[in-house]
Design a protein around this nucleic acid. Structure first.
Lengths: 345, 345
DNA sequence: TGAAAATATGTAAGCGCTTACATTTGTCTC
DNA sequence: GAGACAAATGTAAGCGCTTACATATTTTCA
């Protein structure tokens, strides 16, 4: 018995089997599958018939080994649990699919350590390129990716100071625009509930945006009541309770994203506060959740789909050897709905 | 110039480089990485030092080719856009991670054709096993997977009539229990908004569950006002509008899941109907959305996390050659909240 | 103390595919 | 109809790793 044939071997057909059945060389079969135009039609038909007849399907590992790429792009998002990233990732995947690329998604749970692990895992998994959220991470990671020759695209952030390929929006400016609307209505005591700023440039930029607006309105930016807390509805509610217990209660609470805002809204209701009559609340992202609550959330619309789709195009081009594209900045839009109004006198 | 060294080669270190640096054979290096206990500690240290020094990381394709498995498990879910599957998939992934297995997620958009494509793609991508949602699909697909030797676990459904490995819950019984509560409160005219039943055994079972309960209460199960429509908040709202326009308006609307129910709730509000005073609405799944709306949704709690975690354990065992486990049925729980009450006289 | 058993390491044959280069065949051009 | 060129196909060398089996070394214990 041949030592190379374990008892449980499935003996799936190989390229060689197809070649034999079609009476051609393995190279021709390979070409039929990868660049059909190089093969004469009559031959191609014969080969494809053999492929069908044998139920052949290429071995992934062998193909990856020989071709030196896997046709896989990885994305690491902070969380899959809420919808913040879902829409963009869905669009990202759909667009990748058009190019025959498979998406591998991992989540970091907003932990830099975790993210670093996931990056290594995805690269080890043969990801040809990576989509990451935000610029903020250990420079060693960028060095590692560079050394391995893995192109990276940063999304969700646009920072002209960063030269690496990125597609995102200006979190700071977008949040400043929203905060300006809040202040324009006459709010003087403003609270903010943000994600943890540590290792999260989007959160940091949004905080800076609020401070910018305060400053522009002649208010003291350091007087902002800021609570940093991981994203979750429950955390948003908890933070809101704290803000509402303040001696000088804020009349408006700006939230770092819609998830926190929905939690805040829930808590306001629970505390018997009317929104927006007693307190205004704003979100950021414009996920579906924002329109489901009552009143619907005043927020900032982020073009998630467009970002996902364009990210896919850029990455496919980068894998194809297109070099580094310049950073792209998409526009966000202030989205007035039902949770923001002038403070009651 | 050697024809095998393209100009842009990265020349990453290989196993052989590590072996040379550590003064051992490639087999020893491989063992250090895959079954460290087989290697003497002193040797292991030397090898690992070399690995670090060179920045070595195994080539995925080569490993997959030689080992005949990729350490990847695929999951195909109907959608990533809403949170229905998010929690289970998150738990699934976390548990897989503990076994060093990577998860590949694809979504079918509730299209059987699409799902079949995705299954083929994932298998072609080297998935060692697959997690699928529900039993309902072309038998040819099961035959294909069997032929390729890819273990499959069905989730989200438990059907004692199906012998294949599965972990889920009894959609029919769970929905019947909820419907029973609705009927017990005295509702006589019941409407239902469901996902499309075609190719979706979960949806079908839930409908059957409602009919079971009607029958048990001496009502005519065929008199159920049923609207089938793809899952989305907007669709739920639209279906609700239709139901509310019926001459004999239902006093209770049972929704196939929370997403539809939230849409229905929105529409009720828009139509000026009080919930539950004027009309009761129920959901299914108990996703986060259910507790965010006001009033909170009466629904059925599904142990998503547990299902995901256990699915991962079962699949890892199956890949390990454990054979087919028997189907597992998890318990669901009726979740009374604010959208169900007795009909107003 | 020596043979058997256990442990540690080495050797080298593939795994199934892609692709550079070689060869064959077909098509023009003058 | 010979020579030049293009198109189609074949040949075979790896890609980097795992692992069956061989060999060397250490331990065990009668």
């Amino acid at each position: 018995m041949n030592r190379r044939v374990p008892d449980n071997a499935l003996n799936l057909p190989t390229l060689a089997d197809v070649a034999r059945a079609a009476g051609v060389s393995t190279a021709t079969v390979s070409r039929c599958l990868n660049s059909p135009s190089q093969v004469q039609e009559s031959t191609r038909e014969r080969v494809l018939a053999a492929v069908m007849a044998l139920g052949y399907s290429p071995n992934f590992g062998a193909r990856a080994l020989a071709a030196r790429r896997t046709g896989t792009i990885g994305a690491i998002i902070p969380t899959m649990e809420n919808a913040i990233f879902a829409r963009a990732i869905q669009a990202f995947q759909e667009e990748l699919h058009l190019s025959g690329v498979t998406l591998l998604v991992a989540s970091s749970s907003y932990s830099p350590q975790n993210e670093a692990d996931q990056i290594r895992t995805l690269v080890a998994r043969g990801a040809d390129a990576l989509l990451l959220i935000g610029h903020d991470r250990d420079p060693g990671i960028y060095a590692f990716l560079e050394q391995r020759g893995v192109p990276v695209l940063v999304s969700w952030a646009f920072d002209p100071a960063q030269a690496r390929p990125a597609i995102g929006f200006d979190n700071r400016r977008a949040m400043a625009a929203l905060a300006k609307e809040v202040l324009r209505l006459g709010h003087q005591r403003v609270g903010m509930i943000s994600a943890l700023a540590e290792g999260n440039d989007r959160a940091r930029d949004r905080i800076s945006g609020v401070r910018d607006a305060l400053r522009d309105h002649g208010l003291d930016p350091t007087a902002l009541h800021l609570i940093e807390i991981p994203y979750s509805i429950a955390n948003g509610a908890e933070a809101m309770a704290k803000l509402m217990a303040l001696p000088a209660r804020p009349t408006a609470v700006i939230c770092g994203n819609d998830v926190l805002a929905v939690g805040a809204l829930q808590m306001a209701r629970k505390l018997g506060l009317r929104v927006p009559a007693d307190v205004s609340i704003t979100g950021f992202d414009d996920i579906e959740l924002a329109t489901v609550v009552d009143p619907a959330l005043t927020t900032v619309h982020v073009p998630h789909r467009e970002m996902g789709r364009e990210a896919a195009r850029l990455l496919v081009a980068m894998v194809g050897g297109a070099g580094s594209p310049p950073p792209v900045c998409l526009e966000t839009e202030f989205c007035p709905r039902g949770t923001l109004a002038a403070p009651s006198a």
